[in-house]
């Protein structure tokens, strides 16, 4: 069997701001690893077998890989844009496939039912047509022109607005969404989900945001995002089958699921199957 191509990808393994010399024991794709600061205050990741693993520090997090990453970590140019507040939301563990965590983040149709009165509300349940593509040059999944009515789209939104979204999957367990920025029309708020695969059915999720919002206290921004994600958590833990099916037949998508369909297709094309279920092995 061909080795899973996901082994050469970058994964988040901790918040850089919370690292110390004592280190943090965690896991990556079934391997025990330790993340620590070295004598020069640089992040260092060691594998249970004694190997020193590749490291980079970006978007508030330490990133590593069990294999040999073929390219740099994906770019989020907004992270360096002046005036944005960068929010480390903190880790939340979920007993689900890392791929399911990303897929749920790409779904809009559940907003009125799971994030009621925040990201959606009945009777505004329709997902209008949007565009989905696998961009060949960047090798990323993109969904654009996604529009949805939201009672309280962001902490900085004072009432209901129709929010426009763009979704982007730049790595198999990472997803970046861009949404209408209430205080600054013309710019996009950036909300990302970085998922650390601990096992095929267990992950640590590290939400992160880059927002234009000069008013809301940092803690309220963190609580807002934790509220949203914790509403998803119990749903994710109850999805069956636990692994994400990549072959047709197990689940029947609808038009609103176009992003998910493209994501699954992209995973399969790259042999990104850690956390996936294949009928034909």
């Amino acid at each position: 069997m061909m080795q899973d191509a996901m082994v050469d990808e970058w994964y988040p393994v901790g918040l850089f701001s919370q690292l110390d010399v004592n280190g943090r024991k965690t896991a990556l794709m079934g391997e025990p690893i330790e993340v620590a600061l070295d004598a020069e205050d640089r992040a260092e990741v060691t594998c249970g077998d004694g190997r020193t693993l590749p490291v980079c520090v970006r978007y508030g997090h330490v990133w590593s890989s069990l294999g040999k990453p073929q390219k740099d970590l994906f770019a989020i140019p907004e992270a360096d844009q002046p005036g944005r507040r960068l929010v480390d939301v903190g880790v939340i563990r979920v007993r689900c496939s890392p791929l399911r965590a990303v897929e749920n983040f790409l779904d809009i149709a559940h907003f009125p039912f799971v994030h009621t009165d925040i990201l959606g509300a009945e009777p505004h349940t329709e997902v209008q047509d949007y565009k989905v593509e696998i961009r060949q040059d960047e090798d990323e999944v993109w969904a654009t022109q996604v529009k949805f009515y939201q009672p309280q789209a962001a902490k900085s939104a004072s009432g209901g607005i129709t929010t426009e979204y763009m979704y982007r999957v730049p790595a198999p367990t990472c997803c970046v969404l861009y949404k209408t920025c209430p205080p600054r029309p013309g710019e996009w708020d950036v909300i990302a989900l970085f998922v650390q695969p601990l096992a095929e059915d267990l992950c640590d999720v590290w939400p992160w945001m880059a927002l234009f919002d000069d008013v809301t206290p940092m803690t309220d921004l963190i609580h807002f995002q934790q509220t949203i994600f914790l509403q998803d958590r119990s749903i994710l833990e109850n999805q069956i089958p636990r692994l994400l099916p990549l072959d047709p037949g197990m689940e029947i998508p609808t038009r609103a699921d176009l992003t998910s369909v493209a994501y699954r297709r992209w995973l399969k094309r790259h042999n990104y199957t850690y956390g996936a279920q294949l009928v034909a092995q």
């Binding site: 009621t116 009945e122 914790l230 509403q231 958590r233």
Partner: peptide
Amino acid sequence: PGIPRLHELKPEPHV
């Protein structure tokens, strides 16, 4: 978060 309301007790949405 984790304790949802009872959706079935809400009035039928009127469109």
